[in-house]
Simulated scan of single mutants.
Amino acid sequence: MENNIRVAEQWTTGVNERDIKGVLKVSDPHIELIGPRGIAEGHDILQQWIKESGIKMETQDYYAKGNEVVCVQKATWENQNGHVTIYTFMDIRNGKVHRLGRYDTLDDAFGQCQLSEEDKVE
């Protein structure tokens, strides 16, 4: 579990710093990306998203068990005031993010995995 949280931290830091090489290093080549605009797959789409999203995420809490991690994050976007709370689900295997989803509620994130309130990392 601790290794998976470390991978989640590396992934988030890489996105925040626009470190495409660093994010790809901890992302499966066929990473599945689930977001408000639908589902996409692969490094090419991930690279494009990192370049264009302008997102910065600050992780507030983690829920983790097995291969799954949900990050509770304060998100801001370039050229926008304020922030929103997002819930980022990651399925991490062998040190790489295989599946990632961004959700507007914790319940929606939990609906994509086996995690629950009991899995909050203290």
Rank of each mutant, 00 (worst) to 15 (best):
Q10P: 02
T12A: 01
D119E: 10
Y87P: 00
Y87T: 01
I45G: 00
D19F: 06
K120Q: 15
R37I: 10
T59Q: 03
N67G: 04
Q80I: 01
S53P: 01
Q80A: 05
V121C: 07
C113A: 14
H83G: 02
V84H: 15
G22W: 09
L115Q: 05
E41L: 04
Y87H: 05
E2A: 15
W49Y: 12
E78W: 14
K120L: 09
D119R: 09
G42M: 07
Q10S: 13
P29G: 07
G14S: 07
E58N: 14
N79H: 14
N94E: 15
G95Q: 13
R37L: 09
G66F: 08
Y62C: 00
H83T: 10
W77M: 15
K25D: 13
E122K: 15
T85I: 15
Y87E: 01
Q112R: 08
T85N: 06
D28A: 15
E68M: 04
D28C: 05
T76S: 15
C71V: 01
R37Y: 15
D104N: 13
V15C: 06
E58C: 07
Y63Q: 05
E78L: 11
N4K: 10
Q114T: 08
G42D: 08
K51D: 07
H98V: 11
I20S: 07
L24D: 06
L115R: 05
G14F: 04
Q112D: 08
Q48S: 08
E117G: 07
M57W: 04
Q73A: 09
E68A: 07
K65L: 10
Q60S: 04
A75T: 10
I31N: 05
C113H: 03
E32R: 13
K21F: 04
W49R: 06
G54Y: 10
A75P: 00
V121N: 07
E58H: 12
T88F: 05
G38K: 04
W77F: 12
L24W: 11
E32C: 06
N67F: 07
W77I: 08
M1I: 11
L100P: 00
I50L: 03
D108E: 12
Y103D: 05
E32Y: 01
I55P: 00
M57R: 07
A109T: 14
T12E: 02
N81V: 11
D61G: 00
Q47F: 01
D28Q: 08
